[in-house]
Write a protein that binds this DNA or RNA. Structure first.
Length: 109
DNA sequence: GTCTTGACTTCGG
DNA sequence: GCCGAAGCCAAGA
């Protein structure tokens, strides 16, 4: 925790993403003013070490593409998880990503 | 203690 | 319109 610093906020934001919605690294980085989307990627990468408490499958890159699916225990698990939540994933990309795109600040609205 | 890599993003040519 | 390089922060080697 003490070492988590901003990472803890990243986890909180990811967990704040409602089912059926997806967010991007840049959105989280911008919302947390991290200034670097890579930090979010690193946070999610370490989240894989967790007990799956972090729905990292809802986090995609700005293209809506599941870049991190290879980091999952099972690559297809990410797509299946999204589809189970109502998110259609085609060719490793989120369909209508623009509609399903969820911004952290939207939770504050 | 220093360097490289990394689940990214954006600007420049 | 496509390809290359830079930038940001953090962790592993």
């Amino acid at each position: 925790m003490t070492d988590s610093r901003d990472f803890n906020d990243v986890y909180a934001v990811v967990q704040s993403v409602p089912p059926g919605r997806v967010t991007t690294y840049g959105a989280i980085a911008d919302f947390l003013s991290l200034g670097s989307a890579r930090i979010v990627g690193w946070a999610l990468r370490q989240s894989g070490a967790m007990d799956g408490a972090i729905p990292a499958h809802r986090v995609v890159n700005r293209e809506g593409r599941l870049t991190g699916r290879h980091h999952f225990p099972n690559p297809g698990d990410m797509q299946r998880a999204l589809e189970r939540e109502g998110v259609i994933v085609k060719n490793d990309s989120v369909v209508e990503f623009s509609k399903l795109f969820w911004h952290p600040a939207e939770n504050l609205l």
